Simulated assay, not measured.
Amino acid sequence: MPSKKIKTPLEPGKVYHIYNRGNNHHRVFFKDSDYSLFLEKLSKYLADYCSIYAYVLIPNHYHLVLRVNDDLEVNELSNQFLKFSLSYTNKINFEESRNGSLFLSHFRRIHVDTEDYLRRLIFYLHHNPTKHEMIKDFKNYPNSSYKSLISDKPTRLARKNVLKLFGTKEEFINYHQVLHNEAIIKKYLFDEGE
Score class of each variant (00 low, 15 high):
residue 49 Y to T: 07
residue 40 E to C: 12
residue 29 F to E: 01
residue 36 S to H: 03
residue 44 K to C: 09
residue 7 K to S: 11
residue 29 F to V: 06
residue 51 S to G: 13
residue 31 K to P: 07
residue 58 I to Q: 06
residue 59 P to L: 10
residue 26 H to Y: 13
residue 25 H to F: 15
residue 49 Y to P: 02
residue 28 V to A: 04
residue 16 Y to Q: 01
residue 54 A to K: 01
residue 24 N to Q: 12
residue 21 R to W: 04
residue 39 L to C: 02
residue 26 H to R: 06
residue 42 L to D: 01
residue 7 K to T: 12
residue 48 D to C: 05
residue 16 Y to R: 04
residue 36 S to I: 06
residue 35 Y to K: 11
residue 24 N to I: 12
residue 51 S to N: 05
residue 31 K to D: 15
residue 39 L to N: 00
residue 12 P to H: 02
residue 47 A to V: 10
residue 21 R to L: 01
residue 15 V to K: 09
residue 52 I to M: 09
residue 26 H to K: 15
residue 19 Y to A: 10
residue 23 N to R: 04
residue 45 Y to L: 05
residue 23 N to C: 14
residue 28 V to H: 02
residue 44 K to M: 14
residue 36 S to G: 15
residue 23 N to F: 07
residue 15 V to C: 03
residue 24 N to E: 15
residue 57 L to V: 13
residue 30 F to G: 12
residue 17 H to I: 08
residue 13 G to M: 07
residue 18 I to D: 12
residue 24 N to S: 15
residue 12 P to R: 07
residue 25 H to K: 15
residue 21 R to M: 02
residue 19 Y to D: 03
residue 48 D to I: 13
residue 36 S to P: 03
residue 53 Y to K: 00
residue 28 V to C: 03
residue 32 D to S: 14
residue 41 K to M: 04
residue 52 I to F: 00
residue 32 D to H: 13
residue 27 R to S: 04
residue 10 L to N: 05
residue 51 S to P: 06
residue 19 Y to G: 04
residue 52 I to S: 09
residue 12 P to S: 10
residue 55 Y to V: 05
residue 59 P to M: 09
residue 28 V to N: 12
residue 22 G to M: 06
residue 59 P to N: 09
residue 20 N to S: 02
residue 31 K to I: 15
residue 38 F to K: 02
residue 13 G to C: 09
residue 10 L to G: 08
residue 48 D to T: 09
residue 19 Y to F: 15
residue 18 I to P: 14
residue 18 I to F: 06
residue 54 A to E: 03
residue 38 F to S: 08
residue 11 E to D: 14
residue 16 Y to V: 04
residue 25 H to L: 15
residue 50 C to A: 00
residue 12 P to N: 08
residue 7 K to H: 12
residue 17 H to M: 12
residue 50 C to H: 00
residue 42 L to M: 05
residue 38 F to N: 00
residue 9 P to S: 14
residue 31 K to S: 14
residue 44 K to I: 13
residue 37 L to Y: 07
residue 59 P to H: 08
residue 28 V to K: 08
residue 33 S to I: 06
